[in-house]
């Protein structure tokens, strides 16, 4: 198990390294560089006339005149060694400050969504497989198709509309007005929990639709396995049998796709955030892109992707723990 863990860990580090290169390249794509935008941002409308020389000076100050490779190592070195993501020009402060506790809000959204996804999809998928061909199974299949076809922002709008009608206007966003800028407290955390369910439901929707199908398919396969018949033939009670034998294996593909689910959630996050007025990384990422604040955008993209890579690592370990065949390479 130790060897397996170390191998996977090394793989994770290599992937993260490559991801950081790619994110850096994306940050470099927009025309003009940070110095241009910085100068424009800082002095436009102030009446100060900015000359080429001024911009050149800014460029030198910020070290943007260095070759690309060097700048990459500056950037990634700052992140890894000092947790410093550079300057966010649109906010005139450091990226770390801008991102700040939004990381935790995002993590909160992510984990509540994942929890909801698995709590709903695993039992339902198992049930659909056991009752294969029934009306319920058929209905769930239709739901799955719809769940995958409905654009999430649309779902967000519809949910928001009904939430507004049933629970009052104060349902969008992550906090009620009185807590938005308040320091963290138990009351604020509770307030957040009360708001969290809506984004969690919206983001979980397509993941649930997808995972129900996965669980159902694997469970159907497992139900037909000889080991299930054998266990039944030795008198194991049906409920215990289902849980212990096929269901236990039916969650393997779910575990192995945790990283994929995180990816899907992060992918949908910026768009859903716009509709629901969430103030977390996704929304910030979108704003950063629209402002071409590439330091902030790059930092967020990097964090989100690292989270996905890390969750892939976790899912590998979980899977190895769940299925003894994997670490033995059988």
């Amino acid at each position: 198990m130790l060897r397996f863990t170390l191998e996977r860990f090394a793989g994770m580090v290599v992937t993260m390294l490559l991801v950081s290169v790619m994110v850096f390249l994306i940050m470099e794509i927009p025309p003009g560089d940070y110095a241009d935008r910085y100068a424009f941002r800082k002095y436009s409308g102030t009446g100060v006339n900015v000359t080429e020389a001024d911009i050149e000076a800014i460029r030198r100050d910020l070290g943007l005149d260095k070759p690309m490779l060097l700048r990459y190592f500056d950037w990634i070195g700052g992140i890894v060694l000092r947790g410093d993501f550079g300057q966010a020009f649109a906010f005139e402060t450091s990226v770390t400050k801008v991102i700040g506790d939004k990381v935790w809000l995002t993590a909160g959204i992510l984990f509540s969504t994942l929890l909801l996804t698995y709590l709903v999809s695993i039992p339902i998928g198992i049930y659909a497989a056991v009752r294969r061909g029934s009306a319920v199974d058929y209905g769930l299949t239709v739901f799955s198709y719809l769940g995958l076809a409905l654009p999430n922002f649309l779902l967000a709008l519809v949910m928001l509309y009904f939430a507004n009608r049933w629970f009052g206007a104060d349902i969008g966003g992550l906090f009620s007005d009185q807590y938005r800028d308040a320091p963290w407290s138990l009351a604020k955390a509770w307030d957040m929990a009360k708001h969290l369910w809506l984004p969690a439901v919206v983001l979980a929707w397509s993941a649930v639709a997808y995972q129900i199908q996965t669980v159902r398919a694997t469970m159907s396969d497992e139900l037909n396995k000889l080991s299930v018949t054998a266990a039944r033939a030795r008198g194991v009670p049906e409920m215990k049998l289902l849980v212990k034998y096929p269901a236990r294996l039916a969650i393997n593909p779910v575990v192995s796709t945790i990283g994929f689910d995180v990816n899907r959630i992060f992918s949908e996050l910026p768009i859903v955030a716009v509709v629901l007025g969430l103030t977390e990384l996704g929304e910030l990422l979108l704003r950063a892109y629209l402002d071409l604040d590439m330091n902030v955008a790059g930092a967020i993209l990097l964090l989100l992707t690292f989270a996905i890579v890390f969750m892939n690592f976790v899912s590998d370990l979980l899977l190895a723990w769940l299925d003894p065949r994997i670490k033995l390479g059988v």
């Binding site: 000889l226 080991s227 054998a230 266990a231 299925d323 003894p324 065949r325």
Partner: peptide
């Protein structure tokens, strides 16, 4: 049964 491998669950 015929297949001893398949008669056992692989994860226990």
């Amino acid at each position: 049964f015929q297949e001893p491998m398949a008669s056992f669950s692989p994860v226990y």
